[in-house]
């Protein structure tokens, strides 16, 4: 099918993008990497939306270490996440996640901001943000605000973003001494959305396990996390995932299978971070 876009403007800079968003009163969307948005436009699933192209907004790109946080610009491509030394050193969970996203040609265009704003519950990066307890830096006409990942992903393909707001960056706490991270997933084919996935952040102060593909949003497995922190065995912790996750039946796997796979992943991720 052929896309039906209602209009297109290239934003010159961030204020321009925000003002276009504000003017459009919800009838325009930010075009970042476009790897989901243009597909849905082509399928005529996105409605007749206008597009604000932010690809020329240089201030949205780049990865830098700011104190104890890694600041990743919204326009940072998946390919850059996969090849960044800073990411590999300070947030290895993201470095492990990036190559799992689709395929090379997609990773060259897809952006972290786009992935988070799209909020596909089976996507890797939203779960990374959740496990890493990252802050999503959001800007609108009223200025900038920071939203914790745990508050950002509201529902299926739904975030805390207002219609006149956009993501400008994420701020991710860097790994502390002794911290181990693991991102793992079980996908039918390389690059597919996973049947289940886990981002495990194993800190001396406590473990955070975020799952993807097993609910309407990425989900923090708080029950299992608490059990692990109490010294429960991986099997015991895995058993608690039934209360933590909300997998759904779909054409790729029944909910029970997704839950089972999440349990396997928790055991495997723990084995990896504690080996």
């Amino acid at each position: 099918m052929k896309a039906a876009a209602a209009g297109y403007i290239r934003a010159n800079d961030l204020p321009h993008a925000i003002s276009l968003l504000e003017q459009s009163r919800g009838e325009a969307r930010i075009l970042a990497g476009g790897q989901s948005l243009i597909a849905s436009l082509n399928l005529r699933l996105a409605g007749e939306t206008a597009l604000i192209d932010i690809n020329g907004v240089a201030e949205l790109s780049g990865i830098e270490l700011v104190g104890e946080q890694l600041r990743i610009g919204a326009l940072t491509r998946h390919r850059e996440l996969a090849s960044s030394d800073l990411v590999a050193r300070h947030v290895p969970a993201i470095a492990q996640a990036a190559p799992l996203i689709a395929h090379a040609a997609i990773r060259n265009r897809g952006t972290i901001g786009g992935s988070l704003a799209y909020a596909d519950p089976a996507a890797e990066l939203p779960a990374c943000m959740l496990a890493l307890d990252a802050q999503i830096v959001v800007r609108g006409p009223a200025g900038e605000r920071r939203v914790r990942a745990g508050d950002f992903f509201v529902d299926l393909f739904t975030t805390d973003l207002a219609e006149d707001e956009m993501i400008v960056a994420v701020e991710v706490p860097v790994a502390v001494a002794g911290e181990r991270q693991a991102t793992m997933e079980l996908a039918r084919r390389s690059g597919d959305y996973a049947l289940a996935g886990i981002v495990l952040v194993d800190r001396p102060s406590g473990v955070r396990a975020a799952f993807f593909g097993v609910g309407p949003t990425p989900i923090l497995a708080t029950g299992a996390m608490a059990a692990i922190d109490r010294g429960a065995s991986p099997d015991e912790a895995a058993a608690l995932l039934e209360g933590d996750l909300q997998p759904l039946d779909d054409v790729h796997a029944p909910a029970a299978v997704r839950l089972h796979l999440a349990r396997v992943l928790l055991r495997r991720a723990l084995a990896a971070t504690r080996s």
């Binding site: 049947l195 029944p254 299978v257």
Partner: peptide, 11 residues
């Protein structure tokens, strides 16, 4: 995987 796990009696 779902059918194989079912065959194994896992899920």
């Amino acid at each position: 995987p779902a059918r194989i796990l079912a065959a194994l009696g896992t899920v």
